[in-house]
Write a protein that binds this DNA or RNA. Structure first.
Length: 489
RNA sequence: GGUCGGUUAACCGAGUGGCUAGGUAGUGGUCUGCAAAACCAUUUACGGCGGUUCGAAUCCGCCACCGACCUCCA
């Protein structure tokens, strides 16, 4: 399994050549959503980023097991609330069962992910379905002496851990400074140290989501599910763990601590983190209330949106930036992405119609090499797109007759677009698959022919009326030298 | 205050010590009964101040500004 893929490992803060532990197999774990509200643009970022990685690994020939969890227990909303479980809180407001809320938002999330054309993970485990595994994990930590029980809750002993291992290695935190900076808040008296974190929390009587355990009726700590489920499905040591940059600390740091303490070794080989989507320069987040949901993008139903943006426009928008850069939302940027996406796909349409020449004026192998180099360079999708746009320009020139492609190169070019645009970038033609497409096409041919006859007789009023009426019906005619094309508005 | 990252033209967004990234918009042109579209060509850059270098947007230092995270029961 040869490849030149390099990925930026947050652990070492540099790009490293990707070498899986057990080729051709490779494991990928990505932190999925907490399903207590509708998915917003921020959720699209990791989904698309790691979909790109998953697709590229598949393309390179790896047998990938892609695990993305659904968090359906735990998580607090913010400092203001009184320790209510996020999911439980929403449940109370809407008078629904907690699991009904979970199901509802999970369904929406899945629909949105399908719209964005992300491939489904191999396994999508839910925290609530792995309570026993999490409890087993806690027992392991208690036996190892890295956890302690107080009043039915179990906490991880960070200080003890740090005597043997380095706590904070992923996020660059220094334990002493963390202790110095920790805010002193109520409810921590159970902990031996403020930096300790919960593995199991005893539930209050009114808490709805709780499970029996030998310590108490309660619920697992947030960080635990990822450790327990990744080990279960990918093994004690696996290749890639991904997630948003905002999860680096404390979530992933605690995951590392738990797993290392329980297993006695590093569990994750490559840590990858996508950057944030910003809006007016600030992170788009549920908790900040500055989010626009994916459904709102797709429908245009939000006061900040000047128009609707199709799922592929959103996907293209995300891919046009490198995953480790922030991307700032704006209508202008989305509209530019929409136009760019259309230009790319018009190029593909033109490519389909090209006639081969006897010779080629393009070094197609060089183009292919550049495309692979871009992807190998830590998934540099914007550079890949720039090469594809260069190719589009070339395709148009061939169409105009100023450049040439021979038959073999033409096939290679089609292949290249198929591979990179559809297979790897995961873009798709949104006009395809509509019903009666063939019939519509045939009808349009007849209409255009009739109009052409009118034009030949210089009956401009007739031809303009046809064009105008079609426009009212949502169809745009585009005249050119030998005939006319049409497309939906 | 600490840790990490960023500051590129009208907007978005790559990037290497010397060679036009790319997209959108703008401008000019081709095509055209008109319109639209399409295509071609093309203008405006590298936060500030120093330093290293024959040469720096790219390396180093300082400053300014912006952002993420800094555990609460999760």
């Amino acid at each position: 399994m040869q490849n030149n893929l390099t990925i930026y490992n947050t652990l070492t803060r540099q790009k490293e050549i990707f070498k899986p532990l057990h080729p051709p197999f490779t494991g990928l774990y990505v932190c999925g959503p907490t399903v207590y509200s509708n998915a917003h643009l921020g959720h699209a970022r990791p989904a698309i980023t790691f979909d790109l990685l998953y697709r590229y690994l598949l393309h390179l020939g790896y047998k990938v097991r892609y695990v993305r969890n659904i968090t359906d227990v735990g998580h607090l909303e913010n400092d203001a609330d009184e320790g209510e479980d996020k999911i439980e809180k929403t449940a109370r407001i809407e008078h629904l069962e907690p699991m009904e809320v979970v199901q509802n938002y999970m369904n929406t999330f899945h629909r949105n992910m399908d719209q964005l054309n992300t491939l489904k993970p191999s396994i999508e485990p839910r925290a609530s379905g792995h309570i026993i595994e999490q409890q087993e994990f806690i027992k392991h930590l208690l036996n190892n002496g890295y956890a302690y029980e107080v009043n039915g809750s179990v906490y991880f002993d960070v200080l003890k851990y740090s005597r043997k291992y380095k706590y904070g290695k992923l996020s660059g935190r220094v334990l002493e400074e963390l202790q110095a900076n920790t805010r002193v808040l109520e409810g921590q008296d159970e902990k031996h140290n403020p930096v300790d974190f919960a593995l199991w929390k005893k539930a209050t009587p009114e808490h709805l989501m709780k499970w029996p355990s030998e310590w108490s009726d309660g619920y697992p700590g947030w960080h635990l599910e990822c450790s327990a489920m990744s080990v279960k499905y990918l093994g004690e040591v696996f290749d890639i763990h991904g997630g948003g940059m905002d999860l680096q600390f404390p979530h992933h740091e605690c995951e590392i601590a738990q797993s290392t303490a329980a297993l006695g070794k590093e569990s994750v080989r490559y840590w990858m983190h996508n950057n944030m989507i910003t809006i007016n320069g600030q992170k788009m987040a549920r908790s900040l209330g500055n989010f626009i949901t994916l459904d709102q993008f797709f429908s245009g139903d939000h006061e900040m949106l000047e128009q609707r943006y199709s799922p592929m426009t959103v996907r293209f928008f995300v891919l046009q930036a490198h995953y480790r850069s922030t991307v700032d939302f704006s209508n202008e940027a989305l509209q530019a992405a929409e136009k760019g996406f259309q230009r790319l796909f018009k190029g593909i349409e033109t490519l389909k119609k090209l006639k081969p020449s006897d010779e080629s004026t393009l070094d197609i192998n060089d183009l292919r090499k550049k495309c692979y180099e871009a992807m190998d360079d830590d998934l540099n999708s914007p550079v890949l797109l720039s090469h594809l746009f260069e190719a589009v320009k070339y395709i148009n020139s061939v169409n105009d007759g100023s450049e040439k492609l021979n038959s073999a190169d033409l096939d290679t070019m089609k292949n290249l677009f198929n591979t990179f645009v559809f297979e790897i970038l995961g873009l798709k033609d949104e006009t395809e698959g509509k019903t009666d497409e063939k019939l519509t096409g045939d009808l349009m041919k007849i209409i255009i022919k009739l109009r052409q006859e009118a034009k030949n007789k210089k009956e401009w009023a007739v031809s303009d009326k046809i064009r105008g009426d079609l426009k009212n019906a949502g169809i745009v005619l585009k005249d050119h030298k030998d005939g006319a094309d049409w497309e939906r508005e």
